[in-house]
Every structure is written in C-alpha cells, then in structure tokens.
Design a binder for these strands. Structure first.
Lengths: 213, 213, 213, 213
DNA sequence: TATGAATGAGCGTTCATTCAT
DNA sequence: TATGAATGAACGCTCATTCAT
C-alpha cells in the first residue's frame, strides 16, 4: 500500500533522490554536499544512491535537469494567454516567488555560479537554460513589437539580456541579504522602467518609480 | 641584502599570497581551492602559507578584504568630477572592465554566492560591500535629483537596487557564457533605459537601443 | 556466508580494532599513536577505522571502556568466595599478572597519566575506575573489620588509598625498569606489611620481609 | 641593568628556558608541548630555542636533568641530621609538598610515564632517579637496622621499593582526582603502617591509622 | 534492490627543524 | 645572539567510489 511515488520512510526512488539532492546542492553547493549527507537526508545508504546514479556528478546533472524543466514549465504557464507586457510582468513575479519558495530556491544561482570553470556538463546545462530564457523573453518582446504594443526600434536581444540580468542579480542580492534587499520591489521597479521605456513614442507615460517615500 | 620586496629563498610575501589566493578562489571557489594548489601556484609549500595565515579562512578573509577595497576605490575614482548621469555610466563601464580583466574577475560573484548558507564571515563582508555599493549609487541618484538633473519622484533606493542587480546579473551571465552574452551592450542598454526613464518630464527623449544585428 | 566473526575482505571488526587500538595506545600513548599506525597494525586502511569510529577520541573511549570493564571483572572474580585478607592478597596478584601480560598492560598507567590536564573525558573515565577500585578495597577492609578478622580502629578509606597507591606505583616502576624492579616481591611486601598491621591486637605476628639476596 | 638571571621581558637565558619548558612538558606532556608554545611562553622565537638546544629532545633532557637534581637535593636536605624513622616521615612530606607546589609538580610522573617505550634517553634519566631514590631509602632503612631502631629481618630493598611505590601511586592518584584523593593522609597512613611494622619485636606498638572517622 | 564494510586519494593543519640574515 | 621565513613530513579526518553479499 501507499505507493504514491514517495513511499513512507525508506526506499526513496530515483525521483525522490533528485528532489532531496537538489535541495542539498542548492543549500551547501556541490562541493559542500557529500553523498553521505544526501543519503542520510533521504534515509537510505550511500550504496542505494550509487545504485541509481553512476556518480555524484551524474546525480547533480539529473537533479539539475529536473529543476530546469520544472522552472521552464512554470514560466511558460505564467505567460499563457497573456499580452507581451503582461507576460513580462508575470515572469518577474514567478522568479520572485521561486526565490522565496521553501524548497526550490537558490539552486540556479548557486550551482550555476559554482559550475563556472569547474563543471563543464552542468555549466552547459545552465548555459542552455539561460539561453532559452533570454530567447523566450526576446520572442515576447518581438511579439510586442510586431503587434505595435512595444517600440519597434528597441533591441529585443539586449532588452532580454538586461531583463535576465536584473532577475539573476536581484535573486543573488536577495539570498545574500534577505533582510535588507527588497526583491519584489526591485524587480517591479526594473520592469516598470523597462516597459515605460519600450512604450511606443505616441503612448502616454505612466507615473512609476516612486514609493515608500 | 636583497630587499626587492620578496626577500629570501624563493619567497612570495604575504601580499603576493593574497593575490594568488584570490585568483584561485575566484576561479575554483573556496571549497574547490586547496591550500596545496595556492602553494603550488605561488611556488612555495603549504607550510609557508600557514606561516603567514592562520587558516584557509583567514587567507580568504584577507584576500577578500584586499579585493573589496581595491574595487571600491576604483569605482569611486571613476566618479571623480563627473555629473551624476555620467557617473552612472562610468560605474557600469568599470564593472564591465573588472569582469573582463585577467586577474581580478569573478571573485565577487563566485565567493559571494558560495558563501550563502556556508560561510558567515565572508557573507557579512560581501553583504557590506553590496550595501555600500547600493548606498553609493543611491547617493548619486539623489544628488542628480537635488540638482534637477534627474526626476525627483523616482525611488532612489529602488533604482540603486535595480542597477546593482543588473550589474551582478550581467556579470554572472558573462562568466557563464562569454561567447554569447554581450556584457557591455547589455549594461549600456540597461543604463540608457534607466537614465531615459529618470529624465525629468520636460527633457527630450534620447534614441537608445540601436539594435546591432 | 562467512560468519566467522570477522567477515568479508580481510576485515577486522569493531571489536578487533579496539583490541589493537588499546595496545597501541598503551604502548605509545594517545598522542604518540597515529590512526595510521593502528590501521597498519590491524591490516586495514585509515578509512576503515573511521567507518567504525567517529574520531580518534571515540576509538580511545571505546577501547578504554572495554578494558576497564574487563579489568574490573577480573578483579571481582579473583575475590569470589575469598576471605577479606585473602582477597587483598589476590587482588595484588591479579594486578601483577595484568602488568606482566602481553597485550593488556600499561593501558591504565599510560592513558591515566597522559590524560591529566589534556583529555577530560578519559580522565573522568579513569577517575571513575580508580574511585571504584578504592571503594571495592575499602568494602573488603570493612567486611574484614565487621567479621573481626581485621583491626576495627583502622581507617578503611586510607588503607584502600594506600593499597591503590602501592599498586599504581609498583606498576609504574615495573614498566620503567622491568629488569631491576621486582614487581611481585614489592607488592607482596606491601600487602604483608599492611595485613600485619591490620591484624587485631591479640593475634600473633607473622614473619614477613624474607630478603631474597 | 637587572641581570639577576631572568632578565625582564625578552631574552630568556638557557636556564629560564628549561624552567619554562619543564612546566609546559609537565602540564601537557612531551608530545603535547610544541616548541612554539614554549617559545611563546618564554617570550622568544623558536629560533632562539634552537640556538640553545639542539633539538626538542635535548631541551627536554636538559630540563629533566635540572629538575631531578633539584628534587634530589631537596630530599637529601630534608634528611639532614634526622634519625632514620624521622627521615622516612620527612621524605613523604617533601614528596607531598612537591606534588602540591605550583610550578614543579607532575613533571616526574608525566614525563616518566610518557617516556616508557617512546623516549629512551629520558627513560634512562628517570630510571636513574628512581634507582637512586630507592637506594637512598634502602640506605636509611639499613642505617636504622644497624642502629637497632628498625627490625633487622626486614628486606630493606623491598621496603624501599614499596615506599617508592606508595609515593608514586599517591602522587598519580592526587593528580588524577585532587578533590577526592587525600594525598597527605594516604602517605601518612602508609608510612605509619610501615614504621609500625619495622619496629623491633620488643618495642611497643603505636596506635595509628584511625582518623577523620 | 539495497547494505555496509572498505579503499585510496586528498585536504586542512601542525610541527620539528633549517637557514639566511 | 636572535629572528622569521620556509620546508617537509606527518597527522586527523573526509569523501567519492567499489564490491561482496
């Protein structure tokens, strides 16, 4: 009985292991996480992990892939049936929620940065995620431009790159200094600034950017 | 009596060691850098390092403090005798240059992110640097507002936070994907967008975002 | 399925390790014994030891506890069904045998002395052993006094303390100078002297102290 | 000015170094004492120590020799112009005082035991001290026997060995458990017991051995 | 499918010792 | 006579990985 994916107590399946692993990796980094710790937290022995994964790197790669897919699905869903400018607002919200969530956060920032110059396969995976994220944003901007909603003389690639930068940088600062860094407010400020700037010449200018005086 | 800075045997003084150490730490992270590696790269034995520093953490702290001071000096110098808007452009340039330089780059991003949840003292140091950076930017924005150069209804704190985010995020993406991420262009796009948005109501709008195909 | 106690590969179970460890500790002291040496002597690698024990201190504690228990059992058994004066003779014999045995000797003296001012938990363990040993002796003396076999105006506590002193001091001298220090003869001399002195007023005095030239 | 042996602050002479060294060795043992620690406590650098002593072992040997000489002088002085039985009482007192003193204590016990099976030269030194101590005691006993003060059928060697045992064992227990082990009382009990036993046949028996009921 | 004993390489750190000054 | 930089060997410990069961 009770075979709903995660069985009780013992015997965590392949899937459960990636769940637990990515949490450890996200918290303590790849090098800071021992197979032993993952095993302990999963309630299994090291051997069990090596039964499912060929190596620590393999486990990390599998876990990262899982998370990336999940994150991308979430972003795409947030944009379903939304106008381009609305999509750009929603994506920022999803990213902020992700950063604040209990279990998922930090993994992209921590493992992405840690893999620079140290772990080519994961780096490639992360690079792909970032490229797809920027392409996704760029397509939204282009769609907005095609429909006349956004200024057509803006460089959609650069806008997407700046947007991605703001998200990554805001998340990083938030993890670094959660008490003093206002994640949502920063992202809202950025997005409003950007949308304001992308408004076609004739459109009226919104008043934004002043708050908690 | 051999006083060319690095005295005796084949030595590498305290200072040289922090230089070499921070390069290693920035490249491979704190956990990914062994004392042996630093020693090898400095041409000394592990013992020599422990003669100058009490522990690996001590070495890291000394190296990080050095680098932070250097970076902050550099940013401040770039703003000497510059108008607020010009300062905001120059800071982005300095950050881009820093990210592209041979020896100094990556240290902030890598160690900042790695220290989250794992190394409280370094975290504190980095937090301090980020807070000072944001405060520095905010003061520039406020100076611009006071002089009428920038819109006075903008939230200077949020603008500074967004600016910092853009810088960190752009640097991160650049390290991750130097071939495909256009660091300078992204930062220019961001800064122009921001300055455009901060222009007082009456001022003319510049053309920005010239797409490079 | 190979269940001869020490299973698999070339192993040495937890128990064997404490046996080997205490021998090393007793010979070279705690600080003078490296984990590597224990491993080598046990025919395993360091890692195997750390699989069974959390630390060198943990291994020491386990080994010391084992030995203390063994020693106390041995002393108690020697006194089964013996009159108080006979018990006091037998305990000295057991201690002398213990000091001469191949594997067990020295551990108490070496580790007890080494732990003074340097290793609180082991000190505590040893202190406990000594207190129990003195209490055991005192109870024997009291039993002798209650039965009229020994002078009742003697201070049982002080007698027990002096007895323990003689045993420890004789053992120490024996280890220091086995060729020139006559362990059994010294202890016999002491015990006879003591029993002579504890003889009730009316009883005849034995001739003791026959000098062996 | 001020060259009274130990100069102010810096520049501890050879003699001062052995003083400081033996204190360290007595407290933390030989292996537990680093040259660095001695240097720090003496207010000099390691190099200065190596200027005076060829090695750590050499320093230990010198320090031990100093202390042994001092101790033996002290014991001999205590016996000047005293009858044999009185001498035997006084020696126990000197040993107890020595064990309680601030600076000198523990060195014999700790270093003697630690050197067993690990440090042949020091072991030899300690062996010599013990042999001389026993010989000194034996001669006192013999003198007592020759003068008719003590029973002449007692084995003077064995008596001396038992006496030495009691002293060493009492000291050890005292260091191990100063709160619960009564050093002076134990030694007094032992000596009284022994002297009582050594009294010639005709002499009256003293009442000893009952105290703090 | 999972366990647990074991390995072997490596890491941070300590320390006696050397030596140019 | 003394310093302080440096060495090199060891040590306690960790950890990814292997493998018999």
């Amino acid at each position: 009985m009770a075979t709903d994916g995660r069985t009780r107590r013992n015997g965590a399946g392949r899937r459960d292991l990636t769940e637990i692993a990515i949490n450890c990796f996200a918290r303590h980094g790849y090098q800071g996480t021992s197979i032993d710790r993952i095993a302990r937290e999963a309630g299994v022995t090291k051997g069990a992990i090596y039964h499912h994964f060929r190596s620590k790197e393999d486990l990390l790669a599998a876990a990262v892939r899982d998370r990336i897919g999940e994150f991308e699905t979430r972003v795409q869903n947030a944009c379903r049936d939304a106008a381009p400018d609305e999509s750009l607002r929603r994506i920022a919200e999803v990213c902020a929620e992700h950063a604040r969530s209990e279990d998922r956060p930090r993994f992209a920032i921590k493992l992405m940065v840690e893999s620079i110059e140290t772990n080519a396969p994961v780096l490639e995976e992360m690079r792909g995620m970032m490229r797809r994220f920027r392409a996704f944003l760029r397509n939204i901007v282009r769609a907005g431009q095609d429909s006349g909603l956004l200024r057509s003389d803006a460089d959609a690639d650069a806008v997407a790159a700046a947007y991605t930068s703001a998200v990554i940088g805001a998340e990083t600062q938030f993890y670094l200094d959660p008490k003093r860094f206002s994640l949502e407010h920063t992202l809202e400020t950025f997005v409003s600034q950007m949308l304001d700037n992308l408004r076609p010449a004739g459109a009226a200018q919104t008043l934004q950017g002043r708050s908690d005086p």
